[in-house]
Deep mutational scan, measured.
Amino acid sequence: EDYYQILGVPRNASQKEIKKAYYQLAKKYHPDTNKDDPKAKEKFSQLAEAYEVLSDEVKRKQYDA
């Protein structure tokens, strides 16, 4: 799945936009606030993985290549 789609940001998003999108979605899908939703944990880990790659310039360049 596309990391940009997961975070809901365009491919040319700035680091600030990526961070903002991640924090909004992380708050929304955090397992502690969605105890009754088994998919929230999965969504949250996808968000974390996408953010880890896109927030790191080197990893992001490799991902975009």
Score class of each variant (00 low, 15 high):
1 E>F: 12
1 E>Q: 14
1 E>H: 15
2 D>Q: 05
2 D>H: 06
2 D>A: 05
2 D>T: 08
3 Y>H: 05
3 Y>L: 12
3 Y>M: 04
4 Y>D: 00
4 Y>T: 00
4 Y>V: 00
4 Y>Q: 00
5 Q>T: 14
5 Q>M: 13
6 I>F: 05
6 I>L: 12
6 I>C: 06
7 L>F: 03
7 L>V: 03
7 L>N: 01
7 L>D: 00
7 L>E: 00
7 L>C: 02
8 G>I: 03
8 G>M: 08
8 G>C: 09
8 G>K: 09
8 G>L: 04
8 G>S: 06
9 V>Y: 00
9 V>C: 06
10 P>S: 10
10 P>H: 15
11 R>H: 11
11 R>K: 08
11 R>T: 06
12 N>H: 12
13 A>Y: 01
15 Q>P: 10
15 Q>L: 15
16 K>H: 13
16 K>I: 15
16 K>M: 12
16 K>N: 12
18 I>P: 00
18 I>G: 00
18 I>A: 00
19 K>S: 13
19 K>D: 14
20 K>L: 14
21 A>P: 00
22 Y>H: 04
22 Y>G: 02
22 Y>F: 12
23 Y>D: 13
23 Y>G: 12
23 Y>W: 09
23 Y>P: 02
23 Y>K: 14
23 Y>N: 14
23 Y>L: 14
24 Q>Y: 14
24 Q>N: 10
25 L>T: 04
25 L>I: 05
25 L>H: 05
25 L>N: 06
26 A>I: 10
26 A>K: 08
26 A>R: 15
27 K>C: 11
28 K>M: 10
28 K>H: 12
28 K>F: 10
28 K>Q: 12
29 Y>I: 05
29 Y>M: 09
29 Y>R: 03
30 H>L: 08
30 H>C: 07
30 H>E: 08
30 H>A: 11
30 H>W: 07
31 P>C: 08
31 P>D: 14
31 P>K: 09
32 D>L: 12
32 D>K: 05
32 D>I: 11
33 T>W: 10
33 T>P: 06
33 T>L: 12
33 T>G: 09
33 T>A: 15
33 T>E: 14
34 N>A: 11
35 K>W: 10
36 D>T: 07
36 D>C: 07
36 D>A: 07
38 P>A: 07
39 K>F: 13
39 K>S: 13
39 K>Q: 08
41 K>M: 15
42 E>M: 08
42 E>L: 09
43 K>C: 07
43 K>Q: 06
43 K>P: 03
44 F>C: 05
44 F>M: 11
44 F>W: 13
44 F>N: 03
45 S>D: 15
45 S>T: 15
45 S>A: 15
46 Q>K: 15
46 Q>R: 13
46 Q>M: 10
47 L>H: 02
47 L>S: 03
48 A>E: 09
48 A>Q: 14
48 A>M: 15
49 E>A: 14
49 E>Q: 14
50 A>R: 00
50 A>Q: 00
50 A>F: 01
51 Y>N: 02
51 Y>R: 02
52 E>R: 06
52 E>F: 09
52 E>M: 09
53 V>T: 15
53 V>N: 03
53 V>F: 04
53 V>L: 05
54 L>I: 05
54 L>D: 00
54 L>E: 00
54 L>Y: 00
54 L>W: 01
54 L>T: 01
54 L>P: 00
55 S>Q: 07
55 S>K: 11
55 S>A: 09
56 D>N: 06
56 D>V: 02
56 D>G: 01
57 E>S: 09
57 E>R: 06
58 V>D: 12
58 V>G: 08
58 V>F: 12
59 K>Q: 09
60 R>N: 02
60 R>Y: 01
61 K>I: 07
61 K>H: 12
61 K>Y: 08
61 K>G: 11
62 Q>A: 14
63 Y>K: 01
63 Y>A: 02
63 Y>V: 02
63 Y>R: 01
64 D>L: 02
65 A>G: 09
65 A>M: 14
65 A>H: 11
65 A>W: 06
